[in-house]
Every structure is written in structure tokens, then in C-alpha cells.
Amino acid sequence: MSDQHTDVQAFFAARAADWDSRFPDDGPAYAAAVAELGLRRGDAVLDAGCGTGRALPALRDAVGPSGTVVGLDLTAAMLAQAVRAGRDRSGVLLLGDVGRLPLRDGAVDAVFGAGLVSHLARPAEDLRELARVVRPGGRLALFHPIGRAALAARHGRQLTGDDLRAEPRLRPLLAGSGWRMVAYEDVDARFLVLADRMD
């Protein structure tokens, strides 16, 4: 396991117990972002870096009882909180690494990733691995319930151009990893990027 993985696990393990209570009003933003994935009844979807599973109920609603919802996270403590919140009823929870997904090629129709990009150990390789498990033409949503500038301000930082989520950096990163960006939105209320899996 890389130092980046260890750092991410430590960061989220320390915050897992009160994660949902720190951000109690994000539910509608998650549901709105999930709606933009364009999921259909019976689809299969992966919530990559699912954390406490806040997107899982909306994902389940979108794919219906015949669909498949998989939530994967690197941090056991976050998955434990998902279970405590009852979100394991909305999908299968897996402890694992986005860089080595336990899914076959083309297994899912879409991937949802909330707060994911800035925590990837190897962004290009990890996004390529996500592309591997999505069928050609399938969709990726990279989401955060607050925009880049508002998030930087919240943490007392300046927004810089080397942020991986900045459009001039993210668009070529996605393109080199098997994705074609189709939408980029970065406003105070949310960050949402949609990309389609290239054939």
C-alpha cells in the first residue's frame, strides 16, 4: 500500500464517526448529481470512494430493485458508518482500492465519485481502471457538494491552477484515461464533471 493510500485511510478513519453530522444538508445535492448520471432501471453502478454511502440510496432509487449498486471505499471505518446508517441496504459494500477494482471489464454502466479525484494515489492510472470496468459509452460523474473556490475558502487556502480538478488539467487527464468530458460545472453550490467512456 502506498503512502498516499495510508494517508487517505488515516484522514478518513479519524473523521468517519462524525462525517455525516458535519455535512447534514448535502443529501439533495447528492441526489441531483446522481440524477445527471442518466441511470436506467436495471443498470449497474459503482460508487467509487463511497465513504459513508451518502449517494447509495439515490443510486438505488435510480436503478430500481433490479439494478446493481456497489459502494467501494478504501477506509473500513467509513464503510462501518455506512452500515450504521443503514445504507448497506441500498447496495453491496466493498473494502478496496479504486486502482485495483474487483470487477470485470465493462461490468457497470456508470461510476459515481464524490470527492474522489483529489484523493487518488495515481490519478491517470486510477481513472483508467474506472474506465476499464465501465461499458463503452457508460458515464462517470465526479462530484463534490461544494465548488472548488468555496472549498478552498472553507479550508483557508487559495485556489490554484495546479488543482487536479481545474478544467484545463482535468480534461486532458480524463481524455488520456479513456474518458471524454461532456460537462464541467464548478460553482459555489457544487462541482460536477460528467464524462463518457470512450469506445
Rank of each mutant, 00 (worst) to 15 (best):
A58L: 00
L116H: 08
G99T: 06
V69I: 11
A124N: 01
L93R: 13
G51Q: 13
L93T: 12
A141E: 10
D61W: 13
D162V: 07
T52K: 01
A55W: 03
L120A: 06
H144E: 09
F143W: 00
R169M: 05
H119V: 14
P136Y: 12
G138S: 14
C50E: 12
A48H: 00
L72F: 08
A152G: 11
R139D: 02
L142C: 14
R54N: 10
A76G: 11
S118I: 14
R104P: 03
R87V: 01
L46Q: 11
G138W: 14
A124F: 00
L59Q: 13
V108L: 14
A44M: 04
G113H: 07
L140Q: 12
H144D: 13
A77N: 05
R84G: 00
R104I: 00
G137M: 08
G96L: 09
V63S: 01
R60D: 06
G138L: 12
V92W: 02
L103N: 03
R100K: 01
L140C: 15
V111F: 11
T75R: 06
A107I: 01
D162W: 05
P123N: 01
E129C: 08
C50I: 15
R154H: 06
G113M: 11
G147Y: 13
G49K: 13
L120E: 06
L103F: 04
R54L: 04
V98G: 11
V69L: 09
L59C: 09
G115V: 07
T68C: 03
A121C: 04
Q81N: 03
V117W: 03
L130S: 09
V134A: 03
G96V: 06
R157V: 09
L159C: 11
R89C: 01
G91C: 09
A77V: 01
D109H: 15
F143L: 01
A85T: 00
R104E: 02
H155F: 15
G113Q: 12
L127D: 04
R40Y: 04
P65W: 10
D126W: 09
D105R: 11
A44F: 05
L142E: 10
L120Y: 09
L56M: 15
L164W: 02
G42T: 00
L103R: 04
T52P: 03
